[in-house]
């Protein structure tokens, strides 16, 4: 511990990075949240590391698994970092064979922001409050992304924890579910608060429950958890939400490069220019660094057997 504190106080190895390029893997296609954060942070990281370039490498596919696997397989020389959906934790908990490494072994650099979730209800729907939803007699149609995806799992887990009478219609990716809510065929969704904010601001929907964050005037999911099991599930969704926009490096990178990357990442996210730019882009910055992020990942991965069973049922991956 003492060694770590001493080392983390060290400065960036600018000579090592001076004539080198760093690859920043993004596990999605160009565009979208993960790409936007990487491009924003990458520019400042280049400056803080004194690297020749920080190159964004989009490696999309298979719900972030391809990009994350590529990152884990990269050389541990401090010249490759990457960002992907923290929802891969669900993949590890359910032993999804697509995840070809152990998330505990990655070297965690930090996270730029969390992604608090919320229940969003369309203004076309007869359900207006969380109490209406809790007491719904008929199944309420909710949209979900593809089965097996992290957002689908969040919806199923929340429904399981609070005993919601909802019917999830899968296959609504991206903003499709917002259109479906406007058309009235879908009543609500469990989604990222920041993504749904403009939809709510436009008057098409309302937040009726927050999960893993706070929204003024909106009750929190944890207050409706009636037993320990429900609390554990909501805590898991909260942990995942808190992780949000993570950045990691391959396992076993030398301590010198690790400290350089962590320090540069922290300096980048504290840079007032980056904060101003992020505000303009509508991207929140709520950073955490190094070991704190590693602790969050390990905490999310340590689930008791009964919660694991619920997650396996909730994710509902079909047989290969």
């Amino acid at each position: 511990m003492v060694t770590y504190v001493l080392l983390s106080a060290s400065t960036i190895d600018i000579n090592y990075y001076a004539d080198k390029s760093v690859s920043y893997i993004v596990a999605t296609d160009a565009g979208g949240g993960y790409d936007a954060y990487a491009r924003l942070i990458g520019g400042y990281l280049e400056e803080k590391l004194n690297a020749e370039h920080v190159i964004i490498r989009n490696i999309p596919g298979a719900g972030h698994y391809i990009g994350a696997n590529t990152l884990a397989r990269s050389d541990p020389d401090g010249l490759t970092i990457g960002t992907f959906n923290a929802g891969l934790i669900y993949g590890q908990l359910t032993n999804n064979p697509a995840l070809q490494f152990d998330l505990r072994e990655l070297t965690w650099i930090g996270k730029a922001a969390g992604e608090p979730r919320a229940v969003i209800i369309s203004t076309n729907c007869s359900i207006k409050t969380i109490h209406d939803l809790l007491n719904a007699q008929d199944p309420v149609p909710f949209s979900g992304a593809g089965i097996g995806s992290a957002s689908y799992a969040d919806t199923r887990l929340l429904s399981e924890a609070l005993g919601l009478n909802i019917k999830i219609i899968p296959g609504y990716g991206g903003t499709e579910s917002e259109m479906a809510m406007m058309r009235g065929e879908i009543c609500g969704q469990v989604g990222s608060t920041s993504s749904a904010q403009s939809f709510v601001d436009a008057g098409y929907g309302n937040f009726i429950l927050s999960v893993g964050g706070t929204i003024s005037g909106v009750p929190n999911a944890i207050d409706f958890a009636v037993d320990n099991r429900a609390k554990q599930i909501i805590q898991l969704i909260t942990d995942m939400a808190e992780l949000g926009r993570i950045t990691a490096a391959p396992p076993n990178i030398p301590i010198k490069q690790l400290n350089s990357l962590r320090t540069a990442y922290e300096n980048a996210l504290k840079d007032p220019r980056l904060i101003a730019e992020a505000r303009r882009m509508g991207r929140p910055i709520e950073p955490a660094y190094g070991e704190n992020v590693a602790d969050l990942v390990i905490s999310a991965l340590n689930q008791p057997p009964e919660t694991l069973e619920i997650i396996k049922n909730a994710i509902g991956l079909g047989d290969p």
Binding site: P60, A62, Y65, G146, I147, P170
Partner: peptide
């Protein structure tokens, strides 16, 4: 691809790039 309804792999032969 991955069946959008069940999440099952369809004719992907365990190749991740065929999931999409």
């Amino acid at each position: 691809n991955l069946d959008p309804q069940t999440g099952a792999q369809r004719y992907t032969f365990d190749f991740l790039f065929l999931w999409d």
